[in-house]
């Protein structure tokens, strides 16, 4: 339902992605991984029409996303960018209410249906007890759930998430990922997310897409993608791939000496740096 065709993206003459092809099927849960600067967020921006491609087209339901009315796209597709900002004195309810924006008439008047949907979105993400708190006073995990509730209030068919777990503690990370998994399973929302943690990506996604050198290096099920060769080739880390018997997915652990040690003390460091400490 979301398709990138021959997509070239960049700023000026500096292309970040070249001739990229990607198809996201309805109901899929896709994790995009790759090294820093490989264009993961850029790809997500293009898929969400925040950024115009230099060449190529993004199709949503078979039609170019830029040719469609942006409000009707907004009723199908929601984006949660990295570290979004919110004015200091907006409450959670204020924030989530803006999810109804694409469904409202020109005067932005909320109807009973809209209030119900906002209530439901906050209940579904279990933040209803926070609804009158100011967003700026929430913890990182609560805040991320508030943003997810905003996206949910949009009633999207597709949800794009840019590193939804970054800056969260491990408990909140899993809470957010479980929430995303259930949105996909229970509500059939197609999810495309950029993740940094490859093991989390392997555990929570149905399809993994690996970006390297401006195009899709490999895509497939986590079992197909998580191999020692792929991780070594893309991330330059030697790993051992194991099977997680609880969650039935692959995971890896880095081997000792898996990367070259980046510290080179040298004779000058030995003589001077260490010398200064002892003397």
């Amino acid at each position: 339902m979301l398709k990138a065709d021959n997509l070239t993206l960049g700023y000026g003459d500096n292309f970040i992605l070249r001739d990229l092809e990607l198809t996201v099927e309805r109901g899929d849960l896709v994790a995009i991984i790759g090294v820093n600067g490989s264009g993961k967020s850029t790809l997500l921006k293009a898929l969400s029409r925040s950024m115009r491609p230099c060449r190529g087209v993004v199709y949503l339901d078979g039609r170019s996303i830029f040719r469609q009315d942006t409000r009707s796209v907004a009723r199908k597709l929601a984006i949660l960018p990295q570290a979004p900002k919110v004015p200091e004195d907006f409450t959670v309810r204020d924030l989530v209410s803006y999810g109804r924006q694409p469904h409202l008439a020109w005067n932005s008047r909320m109807k009973p249906k809209d209030f119900e949907m906002v209530d439901w979105a906050m209940a579904a993400t279990r933040i209803d007890y926070l609804q009158h708190r100011l967003v700026s006073t929430l913890s990182g995990g609560e805040r991320q759930k508030a943003w997810l509730a905003l996206a949910l209030a949009q009633q999207p068919q597709i949800l794009l998430l840019d590193e939804p777990t970054t800056f969260l503690d491990i408990g909140c990370q899993f809470e957010v990922l479980e929430l995303v998994k259930n949105l996909n399973r229970e509500l059939g929302i197609t999810v495309v997310m950029v993740l940094h943690d490859i093991n989390q990506a392997a555990r929570y996604s149905k399809t993994m897409v690996v970006l390297k050198d401006g195009s899709v290096y490999k895509s497939g099920t986590p079992r197909e993608v998580i191999t020692e060769e792929v991780i070594a080739e893309v991330f330059h880390v030697r790993v051992k791939v194991l099977e997680d018997p609880d969650n039935h997915c692959p995971y890896f652990i880095p081997l000792s000496g898996s990367v070259n040690c980046p510290l080179e003390v040298g004779s000058y460091g030995k003589d001077n740096f260490l010398d200064r400490r002892s003397g």
Partner: peptide, 23 residues
């Protein structure tokens, strides 16, 4: 007065505003 709600949406940042269907 009429467009004040749109101004609130813009306060959430360009990407969120685009996501919410604001041109």
């Amino acid at each position: 007065m009429v467009i004040s709600p749109k101004l609130n949406v813009l306060m959430l940042g360009d990407e969120i505003a685009i996501s919410l269907g604001v041109k």
